[in-house]
Write a protein that binds this DNA or RNA. Structure first.
Lengths: 190, 190
DNA sequence: GAACTTACGTGACCTACATCACATTTAAAA
DNA sequence: TTTTAAATGTGATGTAGGTCACGTAAGTTC
C-alpha cells in the first residue's frame, strides 16, 4: 500500500478529515528509507522527529551503564515511535531507535505536529487518542511485569504479536521481556 | 486553597483560558469527599468518571487471582486518577481506586471531558499533554522496573515523592515497588 | 568458499527476592 | 481502658532467574 493511503486509513480510524485537510497534514510528513541495523535515534542526539512505520520493524531501547539493553517497544507498520521523553521536553535522547529489518517510515517533526494540532482541532484529537491508547498499553505492560513470570509474559507477547516470532531474534525478545537470553532459551525447552 | 483555584492553577500550567471558559469548564466538575478507606472504583464497576485530587491521597491498584495487590499509582493533590482503560473503552473496571487518607476530589465524567474537548480546543490540548506526560512517566517506571533492583526503586520513589514516606504504610509502598512487604522491610535494615 | 560475526542452546553455580512462620508494636474500636 | 485488628520486623528456607563458560549453527562479508 502507498504511504499516503496507509497513513490515511490509520488516521481515519480515529478522526475524519476532508481530503484537503489530509493532504495538508500529509505534506508535513517526510518519507524515509532505512537499512537493517541503521540507527534513527542514538542516545545523546537531539530529538525532533517522531516516526510512523510503513514497512519493516523498529525497536526503541535503553542501554544501561552495564551495557545491558532493554527494549521499550517493537514498532511494526502503523505504529509510531520516537524517544518521546526527549521529543516532548526538548532534551537529549536517552532512548535509542533503530531498524531490526529494512524499513520505510514517515517522519514528522515535533514543531509540525504542534502546528498541525493547533491548526486542525481534529488532529489534536487524534494525537490525544493515540497517547491515551499508548498510556493504557504501558500501564498494562507494567502490571504484567509485576504480576507475571517470564514464561507468562513471553506467551502474552506472542499471542498479541505473532509476527514478532519470525521477524525478531530471540535475544531481542528477551530484552523486551526483561530476562536474559539464556532464561528465554530455557523457557521453551520442549 | 479552594477547589476552583487549585484546578485553575493546575490547568494554567498547560493552557490559558478566559475566566468565562474556565468557569464553564469548572461547572462540569463535581466536588466529592471521601473517608479513609472508602472505595471510589471497585473492579467490576462501570467506570464513567475520572478524579482530580484536591486533598488527601488515593491509590489505584490491581488485585490478581492470588489476591495479591499491585499499586499502579498513588494520587496526591493535583494528580488525576481513574481506571483509564475502562473509562476510555467503556469497559468494566479491572483496576480499583480507593482512599489511603480522607480525601477531597473533583469528579469529571468521560462524556463531559469529551464534550469539553470538543467545544474548547485548548481543553483538548490540555488533556493531550496530561496524557503525554503520563505516558512518558509510565515508560520511565517500566524501564526502572527492568533495570533496577528493589532498593534502587525504593530510593527513587522516596526521592521523587518524599511525602509518601509519612502518609503511606510500608506494605503499600512494597505493593507499588512490586516486592513483598518483608523484602521492603529488610531493605532499610540500617 | 574461507573467515568472521551473530544467534542460539545448555550445564554449573550464584543471588535477589518470595514464602512461611511467628513475634512485636501501633492504631482503631468497643 | 480493654480488645481487636492492622502494620511492621525478622529468622529459616525455597526458587526464578542471573551470570559465566563453552559449544554449535547460521548468516555476512571478503
Amino acid at each position: 500500500m502507498q504511504a499516503k493511503e496507509l497513513l490515511k486509513e490509520h488516521i481515519a480510524k480515529t478522526i475524519s478529515l476532508t481530503d484537503e485537510q489530509f493532504d495538508y497534514l500529509f505534506s508535513h510528513f517526510k518519507l524515509q528509507s532505512f537499512k537493517k541495523g541503521q540507527v534513527i535515534i542514538a542516545a545523546g542526539d537531539k530529538v525532533d522527529h517522531e516516526y510512523f512505520v510503513l514497512d519493516g520493524c523498529l525497536k526503541s531501547f535503553y542501554i544501561n551503564d552495564d551495557l545491558k539493553m532493554f527494549i521499550l517497544q517493537f514498532a511494526m507498520p502503523t505504529w509510531w515511535s520516537s524517544d518521546y521523553n526527549a521529543l516532548y521536553s526538548n532534551a537529549k535522547a536517552t532512548i535509542n531507535l533503530d531498524c531490526i529489518t529494512d524499513a520505510e517510515v514517515l517522519c514528522l517533526s515535533n514543531d509540525d505536529r504542534e502546528k498541525l494540532c493547533n491548526e486542525i482541532h481534529q488532529v489534536e484529537h487524534f494525537f490525544r487518542w493515540r497517547t491515551n491508547k499508548g498510556y493504557v498499553a504501558s500501564q498494562k505492560r507494567l502490571l504484567s511485569f509485576m504480576n507475571n513470570d517470564a514464561k507468562h509474559r513471553y506467551e502474552e507477547l506472542l499471542a498479541q504479536y505473532p509476527a514478532l516470532y519470525n521477524i525478531v531474534p530471540k535475544h531481542l525478545i528477551a530484552a523486551y521481556l526483561g530476562v536474559s537470553r539464556e532464561t528465554l532459551s530455557r523457557l521453551y525447552q520442549h
